[in-house]
Amino acid sequence: MADGVKPRVKVPKTASAGDTITIKTLISHKMESGQRKDGDGNVIPRSIINRFTCDFNGQNVIDITLEAAISTNPYFEFQAIVPEAGEFKFTWYDDDGSVYEETKEISVS
């Protein structure tokens, strides 16, 4: 598991059924591109988050494939439809096999 990887997610606490909401996600991750060389001239191997998904009550909202050109501390903003109350699940997949997760509840008025 990469060091110090911490997700942050911003989801409104409530919405009306059928509303569109904006979701923002940020995760602290170095996103080592594989383009850099260390002091001895050896290439530092790529080690990035390669995939991000957001699901709501089991249905997919967005599925993003990330490449090395996504900046350190990957940031995503996107929009989701909220059909009913439930739980958003956010998953980040690391090159090294680690999986980071975060969930956020939303209630419907």
Partner: peptide, 14 residues
């Protein structure tokens, strides 16, 4: 996915 509202996304790139 099915629950995507606007088929849009923002991010930061290198």
């Amino acid at each position: 996915g099915a629950l995507s509202a606007s088929h849009s996304a923002s991010t930061r790139i290198r």
